[in-house]
């Protein structure tokens, strides 16, 4: 299963619900304002670390570059992906759950 999250973790509880309900071996992709969860030094970094031990996590590069965030500050273990790799993930995993 692929979870996609586009809301800031500091503004909505979408990511928290996603992390709570994601199963081992699921994949989680953060895009749009969801990308803010993928960076070091935030108050939710520990929750992300915990999830990384059971799920694959991805972050959409054009969205974090637009927001001034730097690849070097992505939490290690989260993979940055392009639009076409995003599409590949939606093909690879089924179903897709969008945490709006």
């Amino acid at each position: 299963m692929l979870h996609i999250v586009n809301k800031s973790p500091f503004d909505r509880n979408s990511l928290q619900s996603c992390l709570r309900l994601a199963q081992p071996n699921d994949a989680i992709l953060m895009y749009e304002d969801g990308i803010y969860a993928a960076f070091k030094g935030t108050v939710i970094e520990n929750d992300i670390q915990t999830t990384l031990s059971k799920c694959k996590m991805y972050v959409l590069k054009p969205d974090f570059e637009a927001r001034g965030m730097n690849e070097g500050n992505v939490i290690p273990g989260i993979q940055s992906v392009s639009y076409s790799e995003f599409v590949d993930l939606t093909v690879q995993y089924s179903p897709v759950q969008a945490w709006l």
Binding site: F10, R67, G68, M69
Partner: peptide
């Protein structure tokens, strides 16, 4: 809150 992100430098759109 998330308003601080408005001022983040290096935004590349």
């Amino acid at each position: 809150d998330d308003g601080v992100y408005q001022l983040k430098k290096d935004q590349k759109t």
